[in-house]
Simulated assay, not measured.
Amino acid sequence: MADDRPLLAVLIDADNVPAKHAEAILKEVARIGEPALRRVYGDWSSDMLKGWSKIIPSLGLVARQETANTRQKNASDIGLVIDAMDILHTAKFDGFVLVSSDSDFTALANRLREDGLSVIGIGEAKTPDSLRNVCNRFILIENLVQADVKEAVPEKQNNKLSEAYDLFVEAMNRIDVEDDWYNLGGVGSMILAAHPDFDPRSYGHGKLSGLAKALRDIETKSSGNNLLVRLKD
C-alpha cells in the first residue's frame, strides 16, 4: 500500500444494525483506516433483512449466509465470531471493526484486544456499556447521521457541555504539566482512554478543538500547529 493506514477487518451484524446507515458507517471506517475486508452476517431468507440485501452490492460488502435453524438462536452472532477468530489467526490485519449494538460481542472484542489488535465498535446509543467499554474506541451511529437529528434544545445542550467539561477536567488531572497549559491532543487521548465512546459529535461539534472552544470555563490558545487548553481561573 502507498500509505501506512491500518488494515481493518469490518464485520457487520445485520440483525442489529439498520441498513439505511450502512453507507455512513463505511465512510466513517474509511476515515480511520483501510476497510480491506467487509463482511455482513445474516439470514438473507428473512424479510427483515431486505434492506441490507439491496445495498450489499453497491457497498462492496460480502454477504455471509447464517441460517437460523432454531428460533431465538442467533446464528449470525456465532458465524461472525468464528470468522473473526479465523481472520485473527491470519495475522494480516491491524484491527477489527465490529458493527453491532449487541452486547454478545463483548467477549469477542476482549479476546481480539488480548492479541494486541485494535477494536473499534460501531453501534446505536442503546449499545450496553459492556461492549462500549471493552473497545479501544466506540462510535455511535447517531453521530454519523446527525443530518437526520433535530438540533438539541438549549437546556439539553448546556447539560451536554457541562458533561464534556467534567471529562476535560478529569483528563487534565491525570496529566502532569509544567504550567497550566495542556496539549489538546493529549487531553483528547486521555479522555478516550477512559471513555472509549467519547466523541465531540455527541456534544454538537465535529472536532475536539470546536468542543474545547465552546466550553466557557476552558481557555484555548495556539502554539504552532497545536492547540493548548487550560482551566479558566
Rank of each mutant, 00 (worst) to 15 (best):
L8E: 08
A9V: 06
L11R: 04
I12S: 10
I12Y: 00
D13K: 03
D15F: 00
P18Y: 07
P18L: 12
A22R: 10
K27Y: 02
E28T: 06
R31Q: 12
I32W: 05
I32S: 01
L37K: 08
L37V: 15
R39P: 04
V40C: 07
G42F: 02
K50D: 07
G51Y: 03
W52D: 02
W52I: 01
P57I: 10
S58F: 06
L59V: 09
L59G: 09
L59R: 14
L59K: 13
G60D: 12
G60R: 05
L61P: 06
V62A: 03
V62D: 01
A63T: 02
E66Y: 00
T67N: 09
T67H: 13
T70L: 09
K73S: 07
D77V: 03
D77G: 00
I78V: 15
L80F: 05
L80W: 03
V81G: 04
I82K: 10
D83S: 09
A84C: 06
M85N: 04
T90K: 12
G95H: 14
G95Q: 11
L98N: 11
S101W: 08
S103V: 04
F105K: 00
T106S: 12
A109Q: 08
A109G: 14
A109P: 06
R111S: 08
R111I: 05
R113K: 15
E114L: 15
D115I: 05
V119G: 06
I120N: 09
I122T: 06
E124P: 03
P128A: 11
P128F: 05
S130I: 15
L131Y: 14
R132G: 05
N133R: 13
V134Y: 12
R137A: 07
F138D: 08
L140H: 08
I141R: 11
E142C: 00
N143E: 05
L144R: 10
D148V: 04
K150V: 15
P154C: 10
P154M: 10
E155M: 07
Q157V: 01
K160P: 00
L161P: 01
E163L: 12
Y165T: 07
L167K: 11
F168L: 10
M172W: 11
R174V: 13
D176N: 13
D179S: 15
D180R: 14
W181Y: 10
W181D: 10
Y182A: 10
G186H: 12
V187S: 13
G188A: 14
G188R: 04
M190E: 14
D197T: 09
D199G: 08
P200Y: 06
G210F: 07
A212M: 08
A212N: 05
K213D: 07
A214Y: 02
R216A: 07
R216L: 03
E219Q: 12
G224L: 12
L227V: 15
R230Y: 05
L231A: 13
K232F: 00
